[in-house]
Design a protein around this nucleic acid. Sequence first.
DNA 1: CTCCTGAGTTCCTTGAAGAAACTTGACCTG
DNA 2: CAGGTCAAGTTTCTTCAAGGAACTCAGGAG
Lengths: 149, 149
Amino acid sequence: MQRTNFGEMACSIARTLDVIGEPWSPLVLRDVWVGINRFDQLQADLGISRKVLTERLNHLVDQGVLERRPYDNRPRHEYALTEKGRELVDMLMVMVRWGDKWLAGEDGPPVLYRHHACGEIGRVDLRCERCGQPMHAGDIDLLPGPGAA
Amino acid sequence: MQRTNFGEMACSIARTLDVIGEPWSPLVLRDVWVGINRFDQLQADLGISRKVLTERLNHLVDQGVLERRPYDNRPRHEYALTEKGRELVDMLMVMVRWGDKWLAGEDGPPVLYRHHACGEIGRVDLRCERCGQPMHAGDIDLLPGPGAA
DNA sequence: CTCCTGAGTTCCTTGAAGAAACTTGACCTG
DNA sequence: CAGGTCAAGTTTCTTCAAGGAACTCAGGAG
């Protein structure tokens, strides 16, 4: 947890950072997404300290992004994405697109996506939900909304 | 900077976190995006410590996400998004969408987007660049890419 | 010549990340 | 049924980054 609490700010970026802005959290989410969802698996895959992993998992469960569920009669559980968490992964897909473009270098992207609907390898594209045209940072004006400070 | 270096991992999420994963970085980017782009303005708006702000700005400039440019004959400069940075803001727009939906509460979103192309208030939507159909975390298979470990 | 202003630096304190050993509760094994 | 295993954490200790506040420095303005 960073020292300052972002969650109080009237800004959806700051609030979202309060949920997954701590170091490791996005990577934990990614791992759970791809099926690495038990404590020791996560710890081994990420090389994260067990203490910090415990903190992150508890926080993500508290925030309703992950759920803990038993998979044995013993006190064993695994972590799974909730609907709220699955939608966060959408954001990670956009993050991946950026990283693939600007940071992957010679080797190209480490991972490819095959879209179920069309069967093609493709990346995610940002469109306006109203008109379907491309929608990027430079294509919009910002207006105060109802929840403005 | 978190202790562990994410940049070495064969993962575009980890690499992107190496660029903007530190606390405050996404908020600095947001501020520069909306026109808060001088040192003291940023410091006042965010309430960030001056030391950390210096570190973050240097890092973002080093990474080619921001550029520093003089605005006076004096040693004064302001920060602006590069193309690389502007595309990162696309990711913030998706982050905002998620925060608006899951964290805004009663008051609704603090900010609205008006799309230049259609003039409507709308959010960003994730589509497959190949077929144009919706593309979310559950709609794809992951395959190893050329840059896989 | 002194004051002001923007853009940082320096210094000190606190608290989160890393690493590694320890704990706990259910089962399994001879 | 004593001893061991295994997953899932806890504890403890050290180190380094974040916070905060005061200080510096260069170029005008009065």
